[in-house]
């Protein structure tokens, strides 16, 4: 009678081993989580996981940082063929956040962004190139009612999967503009002409 539990234990153990082996076999046959890009992917910017920061120097002293809380747009990305890539980023000027309600109003007023007349900051690429890990997007930056061509260096920071299995990619860029070129020449001096923008985007798509 003592053989029955012993036999049962052996069978259960064997079954467990078999299942484990099967799982291992399955894992071995599953495609890798991150695949090489076979074709260009169209991915939407996820505002909730993206950051747009700006930096301006105050009275030639400290760097002051602010942020924009709403960003949208689309990235078409092909790791192997930069010519197929494109970037369009739209930032809501009204979402500026400088940690002070009165200062936000001032930044949004006609003194600076003039957000009620020009509610969006927009970058639309015309050409994307790659130099090793560094990507370069050349396109028009539309801001404050003016448009100028700039080239932005950016890097791909990573790639993963979302909870629903969608593709996630991260891109990061830091670049500088001179605000007077876009007609924001008010208070150049007390506030630097140079503004550094840091854009970290998470994009997602199927």
């Amino acid at each position: 009678m003592k053989l029955i539990p012993l036999t049962a234990s052996v069978l259960i153990g064997a079954a467990a081993l078999c299942i484990g082996h099967l799982n291992t076999s399955e894992a071995g046959s599953v495609e890798p989580l991150i695949q090489p890009n076979a074709e260009a992917k169209t991915l939407k910017i996820d505002s909730g996981h993206s950051s747009v920061l700006f930096r301006i120097q105050h009275n030639e002293a400290a760097y002051f940082y602010g942020r924009f809380n709403e960003v949208a747009g689309e990235v078409v990305f092909d790791e192997d063929d930069p010519a197929k890539c494109s970037v369009e980023v739209i930032i809501k000027a009204g979402s500026v956040d400088t940690n002070s309600a009165n200062r936000d109003k001032h930044v949004l007023s006609p003194d600076f962004l003039d957000a009620k007349q020009f509610p969006e900051l927009k970058f639309k690429s015309k050409k994307v190139e790659r130099d090793g890990a560094v990507w370069k997007a050349t396109g028009d930056l539309m801001l404050h009612g003016a448009s100028h061509e700039i080239t932005i260096d950016f890097e791909k920071t990573g790639e993963g999967k979302g909870r629903r299995g969608e593709t996630l990619m991260g891109f990061h860029s830091r670049f500088e503009i001179e605000r007077a070129d876009w007609g924001m020449e008010y208070m150049v001096g007390p506030l630097s002409n140079e503004i550094e923008l840091t854009v970290s985007l998470e994009v997602k798509g199927s």
């Binding site: 109003k105 001032h106 949004l108 007023s109 006609p110 003194d111 008010y186 208070m187």
Partner: peptide
């Protein structure tokens, strides 16, 4: 108007 505009957002106005 100058004081009002400066208090309500725009130093330039």
């Amino acid at each position: 108007l100058a004081v009002l505009a400066a208090l309500t957002g725009s130093a330039k106005i």
